[in-house]
Simulated assay, not measured.
Amino acid sequence: MTVRVVVADDQELVRAGFGMILDAQPDIEVVAEAGNGLEAVEAVREHRPDLLLLDIRMPVMDGIEAARIVCANSDCRVLVLTTFNLDDYVYDALRAGASGFLLKDVRRDDLVHAVRVVAAGQSLLAPAVTTKLIAKFTSGAPPRSAAPPLERLRVLTTREQETLRMIARGLSNAEIAQAMVVSEHTVKTHVSNVLSKLGLRDRVQAVITAYETGVIVPGE
């Protein structure tokens, strides 16, 4: 199965470089390029790709707003590009629905691997790394959930709420299974139910939700 990708970056050389690397793979096809956020949204609408590789800082419409629109209106997965000095934007991009992020100086093999991982429906970040990232940007901030925490989580069973806490602490499925004394298959079912009931795209958003609803607090 070929992964269809749109590459969006306002720097032509960067955009072309990423495009050439990805297009050289037998299982990846770059179907369009975009030089700003609005063009990225339009390219996704026209070409219906599996993944949007999206720079955060772009003219006309920034990557965060573009990610929000794309994630709300399509099944396209979003992988954002950033630099160390743009870390403050990463959390907002993940909240907008992005499934992970890459630094712009990413190595060729890591770029290809990231595209395949995210296109396959997984989050790019390892659970422990995700936890540290989200904790950093939620530290000291009040919950931002639209619904009261207890009311929002009431749709989850006790086991599913426990699973959400463990996801937020950075535990893998195998570690959750060991802690709960159940099979990994059972854990996968719990994780799937958590995502489905809360309307979340992946584990990254589950971690964000756990912090925003107060299920777990930074440093816990």
Rank of each mutant, 00 (worst) to 15 (best):
V194I: 06
G63F: 02
P148A: 05
R4K: 14
L51Q: 11
L53D: 11
V118Y: 07
L94S: 07
A141G: 09
D75K: 14
P148R: 04
R144D: 13
T138I: 11
D75S: 14
R201H: 13
N173R: 08
K188V: 05
R159C: 02
L103N: 01
G63A: 02
E162V: 11
L125C: 01
E42D: 09
P142C: 08
L103Y: 14
S196T: 12
I167D: 02
P127R: 01
Y211Q: 12
I28E: 12
N193S: 14
S172T: 15
V217N: 06
V112E: 02
V207D: 04
R203M: 09
P148H: 08
D75T: 12
A72N: 00
D55E: 10
M166C: 08
D75M: 00
A177R: 10
L195N: 00
D62W: 06
G17A: 09
V187G: 11
A210E: 06
V118T: 03
V106K: 03
N193K: 14
L125H: 14
S74N: 01
M61R: 01
V30C: 06
N73E: 15
Q161H: 02
L38G: 06
A8C: 02
I64T: 03
L171H: 11
R57D: 09
R152C: 01
L13A: 14
L102C: 03
N173I: 09
S123K: 07
H190T: 06
K104E: 02
V117T: 15
L13I: 15
L22N: 01
D105G: 04
V191Y: 00
I56F: 04
N36H: 15
V181R: 15
K188I: 10
L86M: 12
M1P: 09
T209Y: 06
A93P: 04
E65L: 13
V191R: 12
Q122A: 13
E65H: 08
V78E: 09
A168E: 12
I56A: 04
S183M: 00
S139R: 14
V117F: 02
V155A: 15
E42W: 05
A98I: 00
G170D: 10
E160S: 02
R77C: 04
L86W: 08
G63R: 08
V78C: 05
E160A: 10
L94N: 13
A141N: 14
V182G: 00
T138V: 02
A32P: 03
Y89T: 00
L153W: 11
